Amino acid sequence: MGRPLRADAARSVRAILEAAEQVLAQDPGASMEQIAEQAGVARTTVHRRFANRQALIEALAASAKRQLLEAVEDAHMDTAPPLVALHRGTANVLRTKSVWRFTLGHPLADTPLTEVIWSEINAGVLEFFARAQHEGLLAPDTDLLWARRVYYALVDEAQHGGGAGLDPEQVRQNADALATLIVDTFLRGMGPHG
């Protein structure tokens, strides 16, 4: 890995990544020039930081997956009461995913680094579900791999609204309410019965 960027270079990279997410979410075929314009930087600055479009998409993916991991970690899934951690983690993930709609849904953004981060997220969620099961939040006979798949599907459904295309700002503003709906739905199917 190269040396750390100077503060001004780091700011321009952050501006380029934020602009790229916005522009590509509106037009997946947008040019590097359009991204530079949205970021308020010269086209040469974008090309200096990112050799090509794929390099930019890979940088977007790494940034998005790191923020998704931070959102999960911020829920303190290993120490907070399971119901609190589940709700907080869900709301955090919804907020993060609403910012990175293009990148987190783009198959070309998968790289060895993002696969490592995603594996860490998956393993953490599975460990959390095992703890939640041990502490009685999930039924003793719950298939935890299936529970994780169902949970992810519920988050995705809340994010995209069954094709209704919820506005990212609506998702951010309503993340707590959506998290409550997801957690309630999830626990009715996976929680203790009877």
Results as ranks from 00 to 15, higher is better:
P140W: 06
A71H: 08
R101I: 13
A75H: 01
L83W: 07
H76K: 10
G162K: 09
E120F: 07
V150R: 13
A55M: 05
L69V: 08
A158L: 08
G161K: 10
Q54A: 07
T111K: 06
H106Q: 02
D176V: 14
T96A: 15
L126G: 03
A109I: 08
A132N: 04
Y151Q: 03
E58I: 05
A139C: 02
Q54C: 09
L187G: 00
L126Q: 09
A9G: 10
V183K: 01
A51C: 06
A132S: 06
R14G: 09
A42S: 01
P107G: 03
L138M: 00
L5F: 14
L181C: 04
H160E: 11
G124L: 04
H193I: 09
V116M: 06
G191F: 13
G191P: 13
A20T: 13
L60H: 10
P107T: 06
A36G: 01
A179P: 04
L24M: 02
S98G: 13
P112H: 09
G40P: 00
L154Q: 08
Q133C: 03
L144P: 04
A39C: 01
R49S: 14
R149V: 10
A85R: 08
E157C: 13
P4F: 13
A132M: 03
I35P: 04
R172F: 15
F102W: 12
A179G: 07
R11V: 08
G165R: 00
D143T: 12
L60I: 11
Q26Y: 07
A177P: 12
P140N: 08
G40N: 01
E115A: 14
A91V: 09
M77F: 15
A64H: 04
E135F: 07
E127T: 13
A80Q: 13
E120Y: 10
A62P: 07
T90P: 00
A25N: 03
M77G: 15
V183Y: 00
E157P: 04
E58K: 05
L145E: 13
G163E: 02
D110T: 15
E73W: 02
L113Q: 14
R53K: 05
L83S: 08
W146Q: 15
S31H: 08
L138F: 03
A59F: 15
S98Q: 15
A62Q: 10
G124P: 02
L60P: 05
Q26W: 09
A139K: 03
Q38M: 02
M1E: 09
P4A: 11
A91P: 00
R149D: 12
P82D: 07
A36C: 03
W100A: 10
R95V: 11
A9H: 13
S31Q: 04
V150G: 08
A51Y: 11
F129V: 01
L24N: 00
L145I: 06
P140E: 12
H160G: 14
D167Q: 10
A25W: 12
L86K: 08
G89R: 06
